[in-house]
Write a protein that binds this DNA or RNA. Structure first.
Lengths: 189, 189
DNA sequence: CCATCATGAGACATCAACGTCTCACATGGG
DNA sequence: CCCATGTGAGACGTTGATGTCTCATGATGG
């Protein structure tokens, strides 16, 4: 019969399509999401009980991709700056989804939010703190702020790319260089 | 009678309150906006024809405050980095409103957007370009991206402050230093 | 004291999205 | 060939926000 296989494939496909659509239009209707995925609204409801469940699933997907990117970036190895570059490169494909979740998260304020974000925040802050303790990073910018700024730059970058204001190929470079080096020109060391 | 005076004062107060509320909860109801401003929904509707008109008025307010901040920051005087710092300091009180508009703007996609943003974008990009041409700023980060990143960092900063993750007093310093200097520690010149 | 006007409170209709349901179809396996 | 399962299409009721309306009240000014 292959329930799991077929369902999982379709579910994942729907999830990816929904992420891509909601990245562009955060207020898209369930009907629009369904049509974007090439299925009917009824089938969409068979996969996800409602819009809330869909957003929650997207949140879980975003968390999973973030943690996978963190794992792949080996944040504890080598210079912290290189680890940050690896991380941004690894997380780039998820940036659109993260941008959507970053704005949508305000809907969940007050309630308990998914603990996955706490884990990711902690790992990111740990990376920045490691850079500070090794003397690579300046200490007047707190790890919490660098973490927040990384989220913001990822969202800005994803939005700028989707609007055509920044070339997709420059995404990683623009974010990593701004976050690490800033706008001011630096003398060659 | 004093129509204009009273109306203007109240209208501005309502606008400020709505901005503060919508910064925290972007999906706030017209009823919530009205109660937050201490007026009834009927009176709110007498000031703004509907939610759309309210958001448009907030957009106009945000544009006006941005342009005022740009004027006050004297972006054409002195080193570009100092001008950027003046600008961030001047724009700080509006950051929450800008954060709201930054996410809400996606609602207006497809339609023609307020030309005020184009003017502001152009002035910001001109400032960054001036810094590049004077040799202060690196040239691999495009003015368009620096402009976009500034918006994103302002929004992230406003959100982080309202969530208590960053101290309000550090707002200007965190944004300006990250945008200009980046996270990597810099040798004293 | 009276007239005017802005306001608050609330009723009311409208509307869009949602969630649930049924039914027909078609595709695939036994 | 027959049956089962997943699907599409669409109807239906519900909900929440919105926009409009009326009416009573309270303040202000003449």
């Amino acid at each position: 019969m292959g329930y799991a296989c077929l369902m999982a494939v379709d579910r994942d496909h729907v999830l990816r399509t929904a992420a891509a659509l909601l990245t562009r239009k955060a207020t898209a209707t369930m009907d629009e999401v369904a049509r974007a995925a090439g299925i009917s609204r009824a089938t969409l409801h068979r996969h996800f009980a409602g819009r809330d469940a869909l957003v929650r699933a997207l949140e879980a997907l975003g968390i999973a991709e973030c943690e996978a990117a963190l794992d792949a970036a080996r944040p504890d190895e080598g210079p912290a700056a290189d680890a940050v570059r690896r991380l941004i490169r690894a997380i780039e494909p998820s940036a659109g989804l993260l941008a959507f979740l970053y704005t949508e998260n305000q809907l969940f304020e007050g309630e308990q939010q998914n603990e996955g974000w706490s884990r990711i925040d902690a790992r990111l802050a740990a990376l920045f703190r490691r850079g500070q303790e090794s003397g690579e990073f300046r200490i007047d910018l707190t790890p919490a702020w660098l973490t927040e700024a990384l989220y913001g730059l990822l969202a800005s970058g994803a939005w700028a790319v989707s609007e055509g204001r920044v070339a997709r190929n420059d995404f990683t470079h623009m974010i990593a260089e701004l976050l690490l080096g800033g706008a001011v020109r630096r003398e060659e060391p």
